[in-house]
Amino acid sequence: MKSLHHESNLEVTHLLKPNILYCNWIGPQTTEGIKQSGAVILDLQVRHAFRKILNDNTQVVGPWHLAARWTADEWFPAMVNAGMTHFAWVLSPNVFAETSAKRALPTGDVVTTFKSYDDAFAWLTDKP
């Protein structure tokens, strides 16, 4: 593992074997924080061309629905254009955070949601 970014709301780690970008979101999220952190992740994606991302929301609490449309309409297309092919999203056990995440899902089949890190990791490692 190699730490790539650390803020109060997000830790980004490169899981070296297999080659996965792990994004661990923490605590309450704001629209500004999500957009800033999304820009960091996109920059890492552009520089390193990660095909697989494990996005972990298990520690997220509360709603962040104001950033959901931006995530679906702008951020996901930019990530796909930068080479992402598989995005495993571990949903928060917090109902408000989970609802926001579901609003942020883009159209298409790039994103698959999970209830556990282990299931998401297994799914990603099974992808070519």
Rank of each mutant, 00 (worst) to 15 (best):
K2D: 11
L4P: 05
H5F: 15
H6I: 07
S8G: 04
S8Y: 04
N9S: 13
L10D: 03
E11K: 14
E11Q: 14
V12L: 14
V12W: 11
T13A: 12
L15W: 07
L16Y: 01
L16I: 13
N19P: 00
I20H: 03
I20W: 00
I20L: 09
I20P: 00
Y22F: 13
C23T: 13
N24T: 08
N24I: 04
W25K: 04
I26T: 07
I26F: 02
G27E: 05
G27K: 08
G27M: 09
P28E: 14
Q29I: 12
Q29T: 04
T30G: 08
E32L: 13
E32G: 10
G33A: 03
G33Y: 13
I34V: 12
K35D: 00
Q36M: 07
Q36T: 11
S37N: 15
S37T: 03
G38M: 02
A39E: 14
A39I: 03
V40M: 03
V40F: 08
I41Y: 06
I41D: 01
I41V: 15
L44R: 05
L44E: 11
V46A: 08
R47H: 12
R47N: 14
H48I: 01
A49W: 00
A49M: 02
F50R: 00
F50M: 00
R51N: 00
I53L: 04
N57L: 14
N57I: 01
T58K: 08
T58W: 11
Q59F: 04
Q59K: 13
V61Y: 06
G62K: 07
P63Q: 06
W64A: 02
H65A: 15
H65L: 10
L66G: 00
L66K: 10
L66S: 12
R69W: 07
W70D: 03
T71M: 14
A72C: 07
A72E: 07
A72K: 07
A72L: 06
E74W: 06
E74R: 12
W75L: 15
W75N: 03
F76D: 03
P77F: 12
A78G: 10
A78E: 11
V80Q: 10
V80E: 14
A82P: 02
A82Y: 01
G83H: 04
M84W: 01
M84K: 01
T85C: 02
T85I: 07
T85K: 13
H86Y: 11
A88W: 05
W89K: 06
W89G: 00
W89V: 04
L91C: 02
S92I: 11
P93H: 10
P93E: 06
N94C: 11
N94W: 05
N94A: 11
N94R: 00
N94S: 12
A97V: 01
E98N: 08
S100T: 09
S100E: 09
A104F: 07
A104T: 05
L105S: 02
P106K: 13
P106R: 10
P106M: 10
T107R: 14
G108Y: 05
V110M: 09
V110T: 14
V110P: 01
V111K: 04
V111C: 15
T113L: 10
S116M: 10
S116H: 08
Y117F: 15
Y117N: 09
A120K: 05
A122D: 13
W123T: 01
W123N: 02
D126E: 15
